[in-house]
Design a binder for these strands. Sequence first.
DNA 1: TTTGTTACTGCAATTACGTCA
DNA 2: AGTGACGTAATTGCAGTAACA
Length: 252
Amino acid sequence: MTLEILVSEDPNTRMFGEEEEEYFPSSESFSFMRKTKSSKNNKRRFSDEQIKSLESMFETETRVEPKKKIQLARELGLQPRQVAIWFQNKRARWKSKQLERDYAILRANYNSLASRYENLKKEKQGLVLQLQRLKKDAVQNPKGERQCCGKSEAAPSSNEGELENGDSNKCESQVKPISSMEISEHGLGVVLDDDISIKAEYFQLEDEPNLMGMVEPAGDSSLTSPEGWGSLESDGLFDQSSSGYQWWDFWS
DNA sequence: TTTGTTACTGCAATTACGTCA
DNA sequence: AGTGACGTAATTGCAGTAACA
């Protein structure tokens, strides 16, 4: 395996002040390299030891100070510029993976929320049916003599069954609105104590709720930037102020 | 104090190369 | 041996900031 090094011949290559000295790797891992002017092979993979050191340094600080950079470069037999570039690329890779993680968390949150919403919708339908039955029953029995539910009425649907906990003995509690039900003077309608609030809370919400407003921030610490991540924050990832699409379109 | 210049650095996007299936 | 996909080192362009005249 023949490797060649890594001296940029491009005069436009940006050179930082402290790094302009021509550099030849001295470590053993690069001892087989040689400088060539003609070769375009100016890119070599770093050795495992180099990567290991860089990784461990990256764990403590994602940005390397100039002095530290030069010291690290000396230790690893690299150019300071290479160390800087490695950190730069590493930050970019980390950010990309962090975006994937954040996306997965948000998707899981959304799925959970959508599931809860569907359940609530079914519950609402059951309650509406129950209300209709109660109203109908009240009209048929103006004196409040009401047959126990589940006996004189049609069999409840599965949803209703859930709502009634499958226990017909709980009619008392289930018909609580009935106990406080009043018949209007003309006997043409009923007024439920909680009717207004119920409507407000459930039945008038015909429009689908804005799930986005309900999404809870993930408790996972991966959504918050660790100290020093600085610009790797996820803020604004889903800023839609300037775009027309919705982020959940991806999996809807 | 304000302004223009320079040097340095970070990031995003991209290119170019090495490796592997 | 040839090739496409993928990972990654390196380049480029631009923007922000600090130091300085």
